[in-house]
Design a protein around this nucleic acid. Structure first.
Length: 490
RNA sequence: CGGGACGUAGCGCAGUCUGGUAGCGCGUUCGCUUGGGGUGCGAGAGGUCGCAAGUUCAAAUCUUGUCGUCCCGACCA
Protein backbone atom coordinates (compact mmCIF):
# COMPACT_ATOMS: atom_id res chain seq x y z
CA UNK A 1 0.00 0.00 0.00
CA UNK A 2 1.44 3.34 -0.99
CA UNK A 3 1.97 5.88 1.74
CA UNK A 4 0.35 8.88 0.15
CA UNK A 5 -3.23 9.23 -0.98
CA UNK A 6 -4.16 10.06 -4.56
CA UNK A 7 -4.63 13.81 -4.91
CA UNK A 8 -8.19 15.01 -4.54
CA UNK A 9 -7.83 17.44 -7.40
CA UNK A 10 -6.36 14.89 -9.79
CA UNK A 11 -8.62 11.91 -9.44
CA UNK A 12 -11.61 12.47 -7.24
CA UNK A 13 -13.02 8.94 -7.56
CA UNK A 14 -9.77 7.26 -6.72
CA UNK A 15 -9.21 9.69 -3.87
CA UNK A 16 -12.66 8.89 -2.48
CA UNK A 17 -12.17 5.14 -2.71
CA UNK A 18 -8.77 5.35 -1.05
CA UNK A 19 -10.12 7.38 1.84
CA UNK A 20 -12.93 4.92 2.42
CA UNK A 21 -10.42 2.11 2.39
CA UNK A 22 -7.52 3.68 4.23
CA UNK A 23 -9.59 5.38 6.92
CA UNK A 24 -11.01 1.92 7.58
CA UNK A 25 -14.62 2.89 6.90
CA UNK A 26 -15.80 0.16 4.55
CA UNK A 27 -14.85 -2.28 1.83
CA UNK A 28 -16.45 -4.18 -0.98
CA UNK A 29 -17.69 -7.58 0.05
CA UNK A 30 -17.55 -10.84 -1.83
CA UNK A 31 -21.24 -10.33 -2.59
CA UNK A 32 -21.75 -8.29 -5.72
CA UNK A 33 -22.57 -4.67 -5.06
CA UNK A 34 -22.69 -5.10 -1.30
CA UNK A 35 -20.53 -3.38 1.26
CA UNK A 36 -18.91 -4.34 4.52
CA UNK A 37 -19.06 -1.39 6.90
CA UNK A 38 -16.03 -1.72 9.15
CA UNK A 39 -16.09 -0.87 12.87
CA UNK A 40 -14.70 2.64 12.47
CA UNK A 41 -17.17 3.48 9.70
CA UNK A 42 -20.00 1.94 11.63
CA UNK A 43 -19.13 3.97 14.72
CA UNK A 44 -19.71 7.12 12.67
CA UNK A 45 -22.99 5.75 11.32
CA UNK A 46 -24.10 4.97 14.88
CA UNK A 47 -23.48 8.57 15.85
CA UNK A 48 -25.57 9.70 12.91
CA UNK A 49 -28.30 7.26 13.86
CA UNK A 50 -28.41 8.44 17.45
CA UNK A 51 -28.58 12.11 16.51
CA UNK A 52 -31.30 11.53 13.94
CA UNK A 53 -33.26 9.25 16.22
CA UNK A 54 -33.25 11.88 18.96
CA UNK A 55 -34.60 14.40 16.46
CA UNK A 56 -37.33 12.00 15.35
CA UNK A 57 -38.36 11.38 18.95
CA UNK A 58 -38.37 15.09 19.64
CA UNK A 59 -40.87 15.54 16.81
CA UNK A 60 -43.18 12.88 18.24
CA UNK A 61 -42.15 9.79 16.30
CA UNK A 62 -41.66 6.27 17.60
CA UNK A 63 -39.70 3.34 16.20
CA UNK A 64 -41.12 0.03 15.01
CA UNK A 65 -40.02 -2.77 12.72
CA UNK A 66 -41.70 -4.27 9.68
CA UNK A 67 -40.84 -7.37 7.58
CA UNK A 68 -37.98 -7.63 5.12
CA UNK A 69 -40.17 -9.43 2.59
CA UNK A 70 -42.84 -7.78 0.51
CA UNK A 71 -45.33 -10.11 -1.20
CA UNK A 72 -45.38 -9.27 -4.88
CA UNK A 73 -49.09 -8.51 -4.74
CA UNK A 74 -48.43 -5.72 -2.22
CA UNK A 75 -45.94 -4.06 -4.50
CA UNK A 76 -48.42 -4.18 -7.37
CA UNK A 77 -51.13 -2.26 -5.56
CA UNK A 78 -49.90 1.29 -6.11
CA UNK A 79 -49.35 1.48 -9.82
CA UNK A 80 -46.72 4.19 -10.15
CA UNK A 81 -44.85 2.85 -7.17
CA UNK A 82 -44.81 -0.63 -8.70
CA UNK A 83 -43.58 0.65 -12.01
CA UNK A 84 -40.86 2.75 -10.41
CA UNK A 85 -39.31 -0.05 -8.41
CA UNK A 86 -39.96 -3.07 -10.64
CA UNK A 87 -36.60 -2.84 -12.39
CA UNK A 88 -34.46 -3.08 -9.30
CA UNK A 89 -36.02 -5.75 -7.13
CA UNK A 90 -34.43 -8.87 -5.67
CA UNK A 91 -37.01 -11.65 -5.72
CA UNK A 92 -37.29 -14.74 -3.51
CA UNK A 93 -38.91 -17.60 -5.41
CA UNK A 94 -38.06 -20.71 -3.34
CA UNK A 95 -37.73 -21.61 0.32
CA UNK A 96 -35.51 -24.69 0.23
CA UNK A 97 -32.35 -26.14 -1.24
CA UNK A 98 -31.31 -29.76 -1.64
CA UNK A 99 -28.14 -31.70 -2.39
CA UNK A 100 -26.99 -31.49 -6.00
CA UNK A 101 -27.67 -34.42 -8.38
CA UNK A 102 -24.05 -35.63 -8.15
CA UNK A 103 -24.21 -35.45 -4.36
CA UNK A 104 -22.07 -32.31 -4.38
CA UNK A 105 -23.14 -28.81 -3.51
CA UNK A 106 -26.69 -27.53 -3.33
CA UNK A 107 -29.40 -26.81 -5.88
CA UNK A 108 -32.72 -25.05 -5.55
CA UNK A 109 -35.42 -27.58 -4.78
CA UNK A 110 -38.02 -27.18 -7.54
CA UNK A 111 -40.67 -28.59 -5.20
CA UNK A 112 -40.12 -25.68 -2.86
CA UNK A 113 -41.40 -22.98 -5.16
CA UNK A 114 -43.30 -20.24 -3.34
CA UNK A 115 -46.90 -19.74 -4.34
CA UNK A 116 -46.29 -16.04 -4.36
CA UNK A 117 -42.87 -14.49 -4.88
CA UNK A 118 -41.47 -12.33 -2.12
CA UNK A 119 -39.66 -9.12 -2.92
CA UNK A 120 -36.84 -8.03 -0.65
CA UNK A 121 -38.01 -4.55 0.36
CA UNK A 122 -36.68 -1.73 -1.80
CA UNK A 123 -38.70 0.55 0.54
CA UNK A 124 -41.55 -0.28 2.88
CA UNK A 125 -44.57 1.83 1.96
CA UNK A 126 -46.49 -1.22 0.82
CA UNK A 127 -45.89 -3.52 3.81
CA UNK A 128 -46.47 -0.66 6.17
CA UNK A 129 -49.69 0.57 4.61
CA UNK A 130 -50.93 -2.98 4.50
CA UNK A 131 -50.34 -3.00 8.27
CA UNK A 132 -51.83 0.45 8.79
CA UNK A 133 -55.10 -0.90 7.46
CA UNK A 134 -55.44 -2.72 10.75
CA UNK A 135 -54.19 0.15 12.86
CA UNK A 136 -56.28 2.99 11.54
CA UNK A 137 -60.02 3.09 12.06
CA UNK A 138 -60.83 6.35 13.74
CA UNK A 139 -59.62 9.94 13.74
CA UNK A 140 -58.40 9.07 17.25
CA UNK A 141 -55.76 6.78 15.69
CA UNK A 142 -54.22 9.71 13.85
CA UNK A 143 -51.68 11.00 13.39
CA UNK A 144 -49.65 7.81 13.23
CA UNK A 145 -45.98 8.76 13.38
CA UNK A 146 -43.68 5.78 12.91
CA UNK A 147 -40.08 5.29 11.88
CA UNK A 148 -38.05 2.17 11.24
CA UNK A 149 -34.31 1.59 11.00
CA UNK A 150 -33.53 -1.20 8.60
CA UNK A 151 -31.72 -2.44 5.54
CA UNK A 152 -33.15 -2.37 2.05
CA UNK A 153 -32.13 -3.80 -1.31
CA UNK A 154 -32.17 -2.09 -4.68
CA UNK A 155 -30.51 -4.00 -7.47
CA UNK A 156 -28.54 -1.18 -9.02
CA UNK A 157 -26.43 -1.74 -12.11
CA UNK A 158 -23.52 0.21 -10.84
CA UNK A 159 -22.44 0.52 -7.23
CA UNK A 160 -20.07 2.67 -5.22
CA UNK A 161 -19.14 2.42 -1.54
CA UNK A 162 -21.68 4.29 0.60
CA UNK A 163 -23.07 6.28 -2.34
CA UNK A 164 -24.84 3.44 -4.05
CA UNK A 165 -24.75 -0.15 -2.85
CA UNK A 166 -27.12 -3.01 -3.57
CA UNK A 167 -28.00 -3.36 0.09
CA UNK A 168 -27.95 -0.28 2.28
CA UNK A 169 -28.94 0.85 5.74
CA UNK A 170 -31.41 3.63 6.29
CA UNK A 171 -34.33 4.89 8.26
CA UNK A 172 -37.76 5.34 6.76
CA UNK A 173 -40.52 7.27 8.45
CA UNK A 174 -44.12 6.53 7.49
CA UNK A 175 -46.86 8.73 8.81
CA UNK A 176 -50.63 8.95 8.41
CA UNK A 177 -52.68 12.10 8.98
CA UNK A 178 -56.28 13.16 9.05
CA UNK A 179 -55.82 16.15 6.79
CA UNK A 180 -53.84 17.07 3.73
CA UNK A 181 -52.46 20.16 5.38
CA UNK A 182 -51.19 18.22 8.37
CA UNK A 183 -49.42 15.73 6.09
CA UNK A 184 -47.81 18.48 4.04
CA UNK A 185 -46.65 20.11 7.26
CA UNK A 186 -45.16 16.81 8.39
CA UNK A 187 -43.36 16.39 5.05
CA UNK A 188 -41.85 19.84 5.39
CA UNK A 189 -41.07 19.38 9.09
CA UNK A 190 -39.04 16.25 8.40
CA UNK A 191 -37.24 17.91 5.52
CA UNK A 192 -36.31 20.55 8.04
CA UNK A 193 -35.04 17.90 10.43
CA UNK A 194 -32.83 16.50 7.69
CA UNK A 195 -31.51 19.91 6.75
CA UNK A 196 -30.73 20.68 10.38
CA UNK A 197 -28.96 17.36 10.76
CA UNK A 198 -26.93 17.89 7.58
CA UNK A 199 -25.89 21.37 8.59
CA UNK A 200 -25.40 21.03 12.33
CA UNK A 201 -23.96 17.53 12.46
CA UNK A 202 -22.41 16.73 9.09
CA UNK A 203 -21.49 20.42 8.72
CA UNK A 204 -22.77 20.27 5.16
CA UNK A 205 -24.91 23.14 3.89
CA UNK A 206 -27.85 21.89 1.86
CA UNK A 207 -30.50 23.39 -0.37
CA UNK A 208 -34.06 22.53 0.51
CA UNK A 209 -36.33 22.11 -2.43
CA UNK A 210 -38.85 20.02 -4.29
CA UNK A 211 -38.14 17.63 -7.13
CA UNK A 212 -39.39 18.11 -10.63
CA UNK A 213 -42.13 15.60 -11.56
CA UNK A 214 -39.52 13.55 -13.46
CA UNK A 215 -37.39 13.06 -10.38
CA UNK A 216 -40.27 12.49 -8.01
CA UNK A 217 -40.45 9.36 -5.83
CA UNK A 218 -42.59 6.68 -7.45
CA UNK A 219 -46.03 7.04 -5.91
CA UNK A 220 -45.52 10.47 -4.36
CA UNK A 221 -47.53 13.60 -5.01
CA UNK A 222 -44.58 15.79 -4.11
CA UNK A 223 -40.97 14.92 -3.28
CA UNK A 224 -38.97 17.31 -1.12
CA UNK A 225 -35.22 16.92 -0.90
CA UNK A 226 -32.02 18.35 0.43
CA UNK A 227 -29.16 18.70 -2.02
CA UNK A 228 -25.51 19.08 -1.13
CA UNK A 229 -22.57 20.08 -3.30
CA UNK A 230 -19.49 17.86 -3.15
CA UNK A 231 -15.90 19.07 -3.57
CA UNK A 232 -15.67 17.84 -7.16
CA UNK A 233 -18.61 20.02 -8.12
CA UNK A 234 -21.18 17.24 -8.31
CA UNK A 235 -24.45 17.30 -6.41
CA UNK A 236 -25.53 14.69 -3.93
CA UNK A 237 -29.11 14.12 -2.86
CA UNK A 238 -28.79 13.72 0.89
CA UNK A 239 -32.34 13.02 1.96
CA UNK A 240 -35.92 12.98 0.74
CA UNK A 241 -39.29 13.61 2.30
CA UNK A 242 -42.38 12.67 0.33
CA UNK A 243 -45.94 13.87 0.47
CA UNK A 244 -47.81 10.77 -0.67
CA UNK A 245 -51.31 12.25 -0.75
CA UNK A 246 -53.90 9.50 -0.47
CA UNK A 247 -52.21 7.26 -3.01
CA UNK A 248 -51.26 4.54 -0.57
CA UNK A 249 -54.27 4.76 1.69
CA UNK A 250 -56.48 4.30 -1.36
CA UNK A 251 -54.37 1.49 -2.84
CA UNK A 252 -54.41 -0.38 0.47
CA UNK A 253 -57.96 0.58 1.31
CA UNK A 254 -57.14 2.28 4.58
CA UNK A 255 -59.97 4.47 5.84
CA UNK A 256 -60.88 6.22 9.06
CA UNK A 257 -64.03 7.73 10.48
CA UNK A 258 -63.66 11.45 11.00
CA UNK A 259 -65.20 13.64 13.67
CA UNK A 260 -68.25 14.11 11.45
CA UNK A 261 -68.69 10.32 11.36
CA UNK A 262 -67.73 10.09 7.71
CA UNK A 263 -65.28 7.68 6.09
CA UNK A 264 -62.07 9.29 4.77
CA UNK A 265 -58.75 8.22 3.37
CA UNK A 266 -55.84 9.39 5.52
CA UNK A 267 -52.98 11.45 4.08
CA UNK A 268 -49.51 9.99 4.07
CA UNK A 269 -45.85 10.95 4.17
CA UNK A 270 -42.63 9.00 4.00
CA UNK A 271 -39.08 10.20 4.46
CA UNK A 272 -35.65 8.67 4.60
CA UNK A 273 -31.92 9.12 4.83
CA UNK A 274 -29.38 6.39 4.34
CA UNK A 275 -25.75 5.38 4.72
CA UNK A 276 -25.27 7.57 1.69
CA UNK A 277 -24.85 10.34 4.24
CA UNK A 278 -21.52 8.69 5.03
CA UNK A 279 -20.52 9.36 1.46
CA UNK A 280 -21.65 12.96 1.81
CA UNK A 281 -19.61 13.32 4.97
CA UNK A 282 -16.47 12.00 3.31
CA UNK A 283 -16.80 14.01 0.11
CA UNK A 284 -17.79 17.26 1.77
CA UNK A 285 -14.76 17.89 3.96
CA UNK A 286 -11.87 15.52 3.39
CA UNK A 287 -8.54 16.53 1.90
CA UNK A 288 -5.30 15.08 0.54
CA UNK A 289 -4.34 14.00 4.07
CA UNK A 290 -7.48 11.89 4.41
CA UNK A 291 -10.80 12.06 6.17
CA UNK A 292 -11.91 15.21 7.99
CA UNK A 293 -14.64 14.53 10.53
CA UNK A 294 -16.88 17.13 12.12
CA UNK A 295 -16.33 16.84 15.88
CA UNK A 296 -19.97 16.02 16.56
CA UNK A 297 -19.74 12.86 14.46
CA UNK A 298 -16.17 11.81 15.26
CA UNK A 299 -15.94 8.52 17.16
CA UNK A 300 -12.66 9.81 18.58
CA UNK A 301 -12.70 13.58 19.07
CA UNK A 302 -9.29 13.94 20.67
CA UNK A 303 -6.29 11.65 20.50
CA UNK A 304 -3.30 12.01 22.78
CA UNK A 305 -0.02 10.81 21.28
CA UNK A 306 3.04 10.48 23.51
CA UNK A 307 6.41 11.24 21.95
CA UNK A 308 9.20 9.34 23.66
CA UNK A 309 12.30 7.19 23.34
CA UNK A 310 12.46 4.92 26.33
CA UNK A 311 9.87 3.17 28.51
CA UNK A 312 10.98 5.45 31.34
CA UNK A 313 10.17 8.52 29.27
CA UNK A 314 6.81 7.05 28.37
CA UNK A 315 6.03 6.50 32.04
CA UNK A 316 6.84 10.13 32.78
CA UNK A 317 4.68 11.33 29.89
CA UNK A 318 1.82 9.05 30.87
CA UNK A 319 1.89 10.55 34.32
CA UNK A 320 1.05 13.90 32.73
CA UNK A 321 -1.19 12.52 30.00
CA UNK A 322 -3.50 10.43 32.16
CA UNK A 323 -5.00 13.34 34.11
CA UNK A 324 -5.66 15.19 30.86
CA UNK A 325 -7.26 12.05 29.45
CA UNK A 326 -9.47 11.64 32.52
CA UNK A 327 -10.45 15.26 32.58
CA UNK A 328 -11.41 15.23 28.90
CA UNK A 329 -13.43 12.10 29.44
CA UNK A 330 -15.18 13.65 32.41
CA UNK A 331 -16.02 16.62 30.21
CA UNK A 332 -17.91 14.29 27.90
CA UNK A 333 -15.28 14.34 25.16
CA UNK A 334 -14.47 11.13 23.33
CA UNK A 335 -10.73 10.76 23.84
CA UNK A 336 -8.09 8.14 23.16
CA UNK A 337 -4.64 7.93 24.70
CA UNK A 338 -2.51 6.04 22.21
CA UNK A 339 0.49 4.75 24.13
CA UNK A 340 0.71 1.70 21.88
CA UNK A 341 4.40 0.90 21.49
CA UNK A 342 3.99 -0.96 18.21
CA UNK A 343 3.93 2.21 16.11
CA UNK A 344 6.09 5.30 16.22
CA UNK A 345 4.60 8.69 16.86
CA UNK A 346 5.16 9.95 13.32
CA UNK A 347 3.21 7.02 12.02
CA UNK A 348 0.41 7.74 14.47
CA UNK A 349 0.20 11.40 13.42
CA UNK A 350 -0.39 10.36 9.84
CA UNK A 351 -2.79 7.59 10.81
CA UNK A 352 -5.08 9.77 12.91
CA UNK A 353 -5.09 12.40 10.21
CA UNK A 354 -6.15 9.76 7.72
CA UNK A 355 -8.97 8.82 10.10
CA UNK A 356 -10.12 12.39 10.53
CA UNK A 357 -9.68 12.78 14.29
CA UNK A 358 -10.44 16.48 14.87
CA UNK A 359 -7.82 17.24 17.54
CA UNK A 360 -4.49 15.63 18.30
CA UNK A 361 -2.54 16.36 21.44
CA UNK A 362 1.20 15.68 21.25
CA UNK A 363 3.01 15.25 24.53
CA UNK A 364 6.79 14.78 24.73
CA UNK A 365 9.70 15.39 27.06
CA UNK A 366 10.04 18.91 25.78
CA UNK A 367 6.45 19.57 26.86
CA UNK A 368 7.06 18.09 30.28
CA UNK A 369 9.85 20.59 30.83
CA UNK A 370 7.74 23.51 29.65
CA UNK A 371 4.41 22.36 31.06
CA UNK A 372 2.89 22.53 27.60
CA UNK A 373 1.06 20.34 25.14
CA UNK A 374 0.98 20.53 21.36
CA UNK A 375 -2.50 20.91 19.90
CA UNK A 376 -2.95 19.99 16.25
CA UNK A 377 -6.20 20.72 14.40
CA UNK A 378 -7.29 18.35 11.67
CA UNK A 379 -9.50 20.87 9.87
CA UNK A 380 -6.74 23.35 8.97
CA UNK A 381 -3.67 21.27 9.90
CA UNK A 382 -2.28 23.96 12.19
CA UNK A 383 -0.37 23.26 15.40
CA UNK A 384 0.22 25.30 18.51
CA UNK A 385 1.79 24.78 21.91
CA UNK A 386 -0.30 25.66 24.94
CA UNK A 387 0.11 25.40 28.69
CA UNK A 388 -1.41 22.22 30.07
CA UNK A 389 -3.36 24.28 32.58
CA UNK A 390 -6.77 25.07 31.16
CA UNK A 391 -6.29 22.83 28.15
CA UNK A 392 -9.59 21.00 28.63
CA UNK A 393 -11.62 24.19 28.48
CA UNK A 394 -9.67 25.21 25.43
CA UNK A 395 -10.39 21.89 23.71
CA UNK A 396 -14.10 22.08 24.44
CA UNK A 397 -14.21 25.45 22.73
CA UNK A 398 -11.94 24.29 19.95
CA UNK A 399 -14.19 21.36 19.07
CA UNK A 400 -17.07 23.79 18.59
CA UNK A 401 -14.83 26.06 16.57
CA UNK A 402 -13.77 23.23 14.28
CA UNK A 403 -17.37 22.15 13.80
CA UNK A 404 -18.27 25.71 12.83
CA UNK A 405 -15.20 26.19 10.70
CA UNK A 406 -15.73 23.19 8.47
CA UNK A 407 -19.35 24.19 7.99
CA UNK A 408 -18.31 27.70 7.01
CA UNK A 409 -15.71 26.32 4.64
CA UNK A 410 -18.26 24.03 2.98
CA UNK A 411 -20.73 26.91 2.77
CA UNK A 412 -18.15 29.16 1.13
CA UNK A 413 -17.30 26.40 -1.29
CA UNK A 414 -20.93 26.06 -2.24
CA UNK A 415 -21.40 29.78 -2.64
CA UNK A 416 -18.26 30.03 -4.76
CA UNK A 417 -19.57 27.21 -6.91
CA UNK A 418 -23.14 28.30 -7.43
CA UNK A 419 -23.67 30.17 -10.66
CA UNK A 420 -26.57 32.15 -12.05
CA UNK A 421 -26.71 31.26 -15.70
CA UNK A 422 -28.95 32.88 -18.31
CA UNK A 423 -27.83 31.53 -21.66
CA UNK A 424 -27.58 28.08 -23.13
CA UNK A 425 -23.95 28.58 -24.21
CA UNK A 426 -23.00 29.66 -20.75
CA UNK A 427 -24.90 26.70 -19.30
CA UNK A 428 -23.04 24.19 -21.43
CA UNK A 429 -19.69 25.72 -20.56
CA UNK A 430 -20.41 26.00 -16.85
CA UNK A 431 -21.70 22.47 -16.44
CA UNK A 432 -18.28 21.18 -17.50
CA UNK A 433 -16.68 23.10 -14.66
CA UNK A 434 -19.11 21.69 -12.10
CA UNK A 435 -21.12 23.32 -9.37
CA UNK A 436 -24.75 24.30 -8.92
CA UNK A 437 -26.31 26.20 -11.77
CA UNK A 438 -29.23 28.43 -10.92
CA UNK A 439 -31.21 28.91 -14.11
CA UNK A 440 -34.69 29.40 -15.45
CA UNK A 441 -36.61 26.37 -16.68
CA UNK A 442 -39.87 26.34 -18.58
CA UNK A 443 -41.35 23.64 -16.33
CA UNK A 444 -41.70 20.96 -19.00
CA UNK A 445 -40.40 17.41 -18.73
CA UNK A 446 -39.38 17.64 -22.35
CA UNK A 447 -36.94 20.48 -21.77
CA UNK A 448 -35.60 18.79 -18.66
CA UNK A 449 -34.95 15.65 -20.67
CA UNK A 450 -33.22 17.49 -23.48
CA UNK A 451 -30.94 19.32 -21.09
CA UNK A 452 -30.06 16.03 -19.46
CA UNK A 453 -29.27 14.38 -22.79
CA UNK A 454 -27.11 17.30 -23.85
CA UNK A 455 -25.20 17.89 -20.62
CA UNK A 456 -25.89 15.04 -18.14
CA UNK A 457 -27.19 17.74 -15.82
CA UNK A 458 -30.44 17.17 -13.97
CA UNK A 459 -32.72 19.44 -12.03
CA UNK A 460 -31.60 18.85 -8.48
CA UNK A 461 -34.46 20.79 -7.00
CA UNK A 462 -36.73 23.75 -7.19
CA UNK A 463 -35.51 25.63 -4.10
CA UNK A 464 -38.11 26.38 -1.46
CA UNK A 465 -36.37 29.62 -0.61
CA UNK A 466 -35.98 30.69 -4.21
CA UNK A 467 -37.70 34.01 -4.91
CA UNK A 468 -40.18 34.39 -7.74
CA UNK A 469 -38.41 36.02 -10.65
CA UNK A 470 -39.57 36.37 -14.20
CA UNK A 471 -37.18 35.09 -16.82
CA UNK A 472 -36.74 32.90 -19.83
CA UNK A 473 -35.93 29.20 -19.86
CA UNK A 474 -32.22 28.74 -20.41
CA UNK A 475 -32.90 26.07 -23.03
CA UNK A 476 -36.21 26.83 -24.72
CA UNK A 477 -36.55 30.56 -24.07
CA UNK A 478 -40.11 30.01 -22.86
CA UNK A 479 -41.23 32.13 -19.92
CA UNK A 480 -40.37 31.01 -16.38
CA UNK A 481 -41.20 32.43 -12.98
CA UNK A 482 -38.59 30.72 -10.91
CA UNK A 483 -34.96 29.64 -11.04
CA UNK A 484 -34.16 25.97 -10.38
CA UNK A 485 -30.90 24.25 -9.47
CA UNK A 486 -29.17 22.19 -12.13
CA UNK A 487 -26.10 20.02 -11.60
CA UNK A 488 -24.47 16.78 -12.49
CA UNK A 489 -25.22 14.43 -9.66
CA UNK A 490 -24.13 11.23 -7.97
C1' C B 1 -27.85 -5.64 -22.69
C1' G B 2 -24.01 -2.48 -25.82
C1' G B 3 -18.41 -0.65 -25.68
C1' G B 4 -13.34 -1.57 -23.39
C1' A B 5 -9.80 -3.86 -20.23
C1' C B 6 -7.81 -7.44 -16.86
C1' G B 7 -6.95 -12.48 -14.11
C1' U B 8 1.01 -13.68 -11.93
C1' A B 9 2.73 -13.90 -3.47
C1' G B 10 -1.96 -11.10 1.58
C1' C B 11 -2.46 -6.21 -1.48
C1' G B 12 -0.75 -3.36 -5.91
C1' C B 13 1.85 -4.50 -10.30
C1' A B 14 6.05 -5.78 -14.19
C1' G B 15 7.21 -9.77 -17.30
C1' U B 16 3.39 -11.86 -22.52
C1' C B 17 4.58 -8.49 -28.56
C1' U B 18 9.92 -11.65 -29.74
C1' G B 19 8.53 -19.11 -25.69
C1' G B 20 14.29 -20.67 -22.38
C1' U B 21 16.16 -20.24 -13.98
C1' A B 22 9.29 -16.58 -11.24
C1' G B 23 10.38 -10.72 -10.59
C1' C B 24 9.41 -5.66 -8.19
C1' G B 25 6.89 -2.34 -4.51
C1' C B 26 3.85 -2.37 -0.12
C1' G B 27 2.63 -5.48 3.87
C1' U B 28 4.50 -9.47 6.96
C1' U B 29 8.65 -12.21 10.25
C1' C B 30 13.57 -11.66 12.75
C1' G B 31 17.85 -8.51 14.22
C1' C B 32 20.04 -3.91 14.86
C1' U B 33 18.93 1.26 14.25
C1' U B 34 15.69 5.47 14.74
C1' G B 35 12.08 8.36 17.64
C1' G B 36 8.65 16.45 17.87
C1' G B 37 5.55 14.00 10.92
C1' G B 38 4.50 7.44 7.53
C1' U B 39 13.04 5.98 10.19
C1' G B 40 17.26 3.45 8.00
C1' C B 41 20.09 -1.05 7.05
C1' G B 42 20.45 -6.29 6.75
C1' A B 43 18.36 -11.19 6.59
C1' G B 44 13.96 -14.42 5.87
C1' A B 45 9.02 -16.47 4.71
C1' G B 46 5.44 -16.38 0.91
C1' G B 47 3.34 -18.03 -6.12
C1' U B 48 1.19 -25.63 -9.45
C1' C B 49 1.23 -17.40 -13.29
C1' G B 50 -7.78 -18.10 -13.08
C1' C B 51 -9.18 -23.10 -15.17
C1' A B 52 -8.99 -26.80 -19.31
C1' A B 53 -7.19 -28.65 -23.79
C1' G B 54 -3.69 -27.97 -27.80
C1' U B 55 1.24 -26.57 -30.37
C1' U B 56 6.52 -27.28 -28.77
C1' C B 57 12.54 -30.25 -26.66
C1' A B 58 10.52 -26.26 -23.63
C1' A B 59 4.43 -22.24 -22.29
C1' A B 60 3.02 -16.97 -17.40
C1' U B 61 4.29 -15.96 -22.69
C1' C B 62 1.54 -18.86 -28.79
C1' U B 63 -3.69 -21.21 -30.22
C1' U B 64 -8.67 -22.64 -28.86
C1' G B 65 -12.24 -23.05 -25.26
C1' U B 66 -14.04 -21.82 -20.48
C1' C B 67 -14.82 -19.35 -15.76
C1' G B 68 -14.40 -14.88 -13.21
C1' U B 69 -13.51 -9.66 -12.13
C1' C B 70 -13.30 -4.50 -13.12
C1' C B 71 -14.18 0.07 -15.96
C1' C B 72 -17.53 3.23 -19.44
C1' G B 73 -23.08 3.69 -20.82
C1' A B 74 -28.63 2.82 -19.71
C1' C B 75 -30.94 2.55 -13.96
C1' C B 76 -30.55 4.98 -9.09
C1' A B 77 -30.89 7.30 -2.19
Amino acid sequence: MSKSLPKRSENYSEWYNEIVKRADLAENSAVRGCMVIKPYGYAIWEKMQRALDDMFKATGHVNAYFPLFVPKSFLEKEEEHAEGFAKECAVVTHYRLKAGPDGKGLVVDPNAKLEEELIIRPTSETVIWNTYKNWIQSWRDLPLLINQWCNIVRWEMRTRLFLRTTEFLWQEGHTAHATEQEAVEETERMLGVYATFAEEWIALPVIKGVKSPNERFAGAVETYCIEGLMQDGKALQCGTSHFLGQNFSKSFDVQFVNKENQLEYPWATSWGVSTRLMGALIMAHSDDQGLVLPPRLAPIQVVIVPIYKTPEDLAKISEKANPIFEELKAAGISVKYDDDDKQRSGWKFAEYELRGVPIRLGLGLRDLENGTVEIARRDNLTKESRPIDGVVEHIKALLDEIQANIYERALKFREDNTFRVDSWDEFQAQIERGGFISAHWDGTAETEEKIKDATKATIRCIPLAGPDENGKCVYSGAPSSRRVIFARAY
